[in-house]
Amino acid sequence: MSEQRTRPTTNVDDPILRAENLRKRFGGIVAVDGASFEVERGSITGLIGPNGAGKSTTFNLITGVYRPDGGSVVFDGGDVTGHSPERIANQGLVRTFQIARELPEMTVLENMMLGPQNQLGESIWRSVTPVVRNEVIQEEKQLRERAWETLELFEIDHLAEEYASSLSGGQRKLLELARALLTDPDMLLLDEPMAGVNPSLEKKLLERIHDLQDEGYSFLLVEHDMDVIMNHCERVIVMHQGELLAEGLPAEIQGDEAVIEAYLGGDV
């Protein structure tokens, strides 16, 4: 059955991410069943599908949170299949979670300060050795500056010194995105980043994503809001029941029989 699926109609010239035949089962459920797709470098690509289609699981497989039962992931020309999440993140592929994973008993600023990679002070001896520690403090001051700027950008700087656990759902999603940006990624995988975020901020957020795209970032975006997908994504990937249902330009997807069928059939 999966053999006769709609094949991609457009080609990706310069893929930054390629997933091939990804497969994952949980007990009796096959959450992802042979999904293959590519994401164009520098694009904003949408990943859509009805609830339970396997989108979040696909993210987990790509970013090493789960180990795929089969298939491969290639990021920026290198095979990252089955690598640990930290290794993948350090290569510049960073994700956010559908249910935001803020660090509750840490302040918003502390959360932010975790973003930057390879901080000097992440080594024990640099942190504790008297003179060397000054370098750490200097770096902390620089990072602190970036953290504040990013918080201002996302308009949550007034919450900077609150515990992350006291934030609303939408604010947590913003925090998570802001924190992910501080890692200096090449590509961001965002799992429903707009969920719970108020409409005016959502607009700004989308603008910000476009700005970042102009700076060369690539995005893979899971989103249920079709307007966002149709208006902001260059390409769209559709999943259904763990399989790739369709792939193409937003306009093509909009008219795709199989896609409409999937969304109507599976009572969403």
């Binding site: 180990r67 290198g78 095979d79 299949t81 089955g82 690598h83 640990s84």
Partner: peptide
Amino acid sequence: MGVVTLKERFSDTT
């Protein structure tokens, strides 16, 4: 790289 992959596989699944 192949070695690392093998090692990680080993420590987790098998």
